[in-house]
Structure formats: structure tokens, C-alpha cells
Design a protein around this nucleic acid. Sequence first.
DNA 1: CGTTACCTTGAATCTCCTCAATACACGTGG
DNA 2: CCACGTGTATTGAGGAGATTCAAGGTAACG
Lengths: 256, 256
Amino acid sequence: MTSLRKKRADGAAPTLTPCAQCPLRKVPAFRKFSPQELEFIASFKSGELRLEAGSTIFVEETNSPHLYTVLSGWAFKYKSLEDGRRQVLNFAVAGDFIGLQASIFDSIRHSIETLTDVVLCVFPREKLWTLFENYTGLAFDVTWLAAREESILGDYLVSIGQRSATERVAFILLHLFVRARQSGLVRDNKVAFPFTQEHLADAIGFSLVHTNKTLKRLRKTGYFRWSGPIFEMVDEAKMAELAGALSPVEGKRPFL
Amino acid sequence: MTSLRKKRADGAAPTLTPCAQCPLRKVPAFRKFSPQELEFIASFKSGELRLEAGSTIFVEETNSPHLYTVLSGWAFKYKSLEDGRRQVLNFAVAGDFIGLQASIFDSIRHSIETLTDVVLCVFPREKLWTLFENYTGLAFDVTWLAAREESILGDYLVSIGQRSATERVAFILLHLFVRARQSGLVRDNKVAFPFTQEHLADAIGFSLVHTNKTLKRLRKTGYFRWSGPIFEMVDEAKMAELAGALSPVEGKRPFL
DNA sequence: CGTTACCTTGAATCTCCTCAATACACGTGG
DNA sequence: CCACGTGTATTGAGGAGATTCAAGGTAACG
């Protein structure tokens, strides 16, 4: 990875993987970009950032000169309280755009931390304006991503505010599974889950102990398997029933 | 108000209140727009919609050819469950932009209902694209508004997921008061609150009964007064302390 | 082989919910 | 003017659900 360092030190970083060849482009969930758009994105991109699991990407209430797209790995967004409690707001996976708030407001409103080793595409914040000025389609995409984030937080809110323990646990498992699938990580209904039960607990607003006990009850349904690092979905329809039929945003999504 | 009907029937609606003279423009919380921008907004606007309290503006999972800005009155966004439970996601007040999801996705993800009589500016959805193509600043504003919405939902999530009963009730009261003030509705620390305790309960994820009892306890602090339609903030700093110091998005905000 | 991180389980306690009854304000029609 | 219905606010009682505390258990790692 020392070569990476060199590239970044160069300034222009001309030898980064061209965006047009980005392996994520093949994932069917993403919309197709025009050659011009791809060219701009490639020029927008100023580097790659490799972080190991447990690294902090953003700290609440701070600013950053960068915007990122997740190329690989998982991260999570959270807000923490004075006394150590924390609320997980959302998870970020390959294809997700993070740090938009830091570019739009004076500072970001939540922290972001990696769950696994992560590779990020780095974009300089000041070029976001160029994007808006010259690439209407991409500007619309950025708005799309912001609106989708809002939509997901709305789903979380309904789950936390109104659902029972079983429903909430089923919800978060299903949600994470679906997000993983959209990013092309699921094979044979199996995917690596880097989450601890504490992450899930903090996302659905339960204590770790209660989450654990609920999870135990849920496992008995046999609708999924999750012990060890691999999560396997066995009956997604039943899970959706348990979770209270969420309907995630449909259609192709943009991926900068 | 029959003249309104006529105007809308005309098609072009050339005689609507010019946006440049919109009384909301004077509210200090909104950013200043250039004459060109104001002109475009005026041309973007296709009419006004007047609704009485209790009207439904959007229904979850449906589509709409319109986008709206709230000119006056209060509304709230919510999602309902099969069995009647519902989660209030956010409130909308003068200056807020609603229905963006319906224009960006195939359908909106939540319902919106008026709490008071409401006047809305109507924008045709298809012109949103024109806005993005020709008015970079306004496109950025739309994204700003979407990101702010996300930010508010994040605050709600922290409150519902982690806070105690007292903290949650203090949070929602303070939040509504601050929103009202940003829209210029507060005078002498007083503002008309059209909310029932049930609205608040549905926003903070508590039962009506428990919300009521918590509210009773909170009233004894004397930090606010709320019986009858008028809410009065007595000690905002203390309320913020109780609510757990939320930090709403700062700075001038756009208002289309 | 000790440390660390995570998972699991039981017990006691407290929070919050449901049910149920009452009170009050308001508007309606008689 | 009063009787009645409706919507909202209030309060008490009992029980379901969540939290905290505490004590293992397991796997990974140096």
C-alpha cells in the first residue's frame, strides 16, 4: 500500500483505477452513466483512502475537505451522547456516498466509523459545485442519494418508534441483508456480516442484552442463520413479514 | 377565494402573488435570492393550494405531479402501520419544501397531513429538472433541504432510540419551538401550537398516556407553559439541557 | 495461557403500555 | 337554553416488556 501513498503525494494522482473500469459499475443496482459523466467522475476523484476496521472517517460536528464513496467494506454512521450511549443512524456499504452533510452544511452531524477494512474514493469538496454547475444528471443523483438517506432514516424511525422487539430485530437483519444484496455482496443468500450484536442494538434502540435475547427467539424461526461471521437468509418473505413489510426505495441508484 | 379557483383554471396563473413580494422573504432565517432566481421561482410556481386543517396532502406510496412549499400553517409527515399505529417523521412549517421524494423516486414514502389551515405554493414536478439544469444555486438548495431533512430525522432517531421519557418530551417541544421561530412565528417567546398530545406521542414513540404523564411532570419545572393553544417558552437553555443539547442545522436556509 | 472482545443467561428492578374511567371544551340539533 | 356527541386531556391500576447488574462461556490472539 505504499504505492498508494506515492500516488496521493503526486497531487494529481493520475494513475488511479479509472472509474469506467470500477468493478462496482457491473453491479446491476446502479444506474448506467454516460461516458462524459464517467469522465467527470474520474476527474472529480482525487484519490483513494484505505482504512482498517475500527477507523473513524468523520467525527460529529467537524468539517472535512473531502467527500467519499465507499468502494468496498462496511461503515456505520452514529451519534453519541455525553454518557456513552450511542445511536446508529445507518450503515454504509459499497456504492454509498458519505460526507455530503459536511460539504453542504458547515459541519457533519454524525460520526462515521469503519466496521471492516474499507476502501474509499476521495473527492474534493470544492469540486462538488462544479458537479452541480456542469452535470445536471449527477447533481440530481446527489439529491437522489440524500433523499434516499432520508427515506432510510424514516424506515428506522418507524421501526424504533412503533415496532416490537421481534419486529425490530427482524427489520435490521433484513435491512442489512437487502443493502448488502444491492451492493452485490450476497451469493447464495449468504453474506459476511461484520456487525456485533451491539451495533444492531444501537441501531434499533435496545440494550445489548435485550437484543441478544430477542435474537435468540428469532433464530428459532429458522428464517435465517447467523452464528459466526456469515449471515444466511433462509426465508426472506417470512422475514419481511416479521419485520413489518418495509418497502425500500426501488429502482436503479446512482453511484458516483 | 373563488378568484383563486379562476386563476388556477387559467392555466398559466399569471396573477399570483409575485414571489419577490412573498412575506416570508422577510424572515431572517432564509437566504437572499438573486433577482434571476426569484424570477425563475415565480415562473416555477404554478399556483396556490389552500387546505383546511386535517387535509391530506400526500398519501404514502403514491405519486404526485406537484411539489409544494408551505406558505403558512403546519403539517406533519407520518407513516402508518397496518394496525393503526403511526410514526410521525417530522413537522412542516412555513418555508418548508414538501413532496421532493415524490418527484425524485417513483413515489413518496410517507403521508403528509395538515394540522391547521394551510396555504401551499404549487410547483409542477417536471420543472424541477429545469431548475437543476439552469439554476445551480437552486439545485444546490434543493439538496440542502434534503440533507437538512435527513439531519432532523437523525435527531429524532437519537431521541427515540436513546433518550428517556423526560428528555424526549423536552426534545420535541424545544424542536417545535425552534422550528416555529425559524419561520418567524414566535413573538415574545409565544407561539400557537396546533399539536395534540397524540401528535407528540407519535413523534417520540410513546403512548399517549405516558406522554401525558411525562408532560405533567415536565410542566412542573416551569421552563415552559402549554395549556390551551399557546405554547410559551420560559427558559430555553434549561429546556435544551433537559432535551440533551440538540444542535440544529445552522445558517441561512433556502426557501423556494 | 492469560487477555480481550463478544456472546449468553438469570434475576431483580423499573419503565412503559393497556385498560378503564372521568373531566372538560366545543359544536350540534332540539 | 339544554342534551348530546365528539375530540382531547387526565388519572389510577395492573401487567408486559426492557433495563441493569452480574456471572459465565467461547474464540482469537500474542
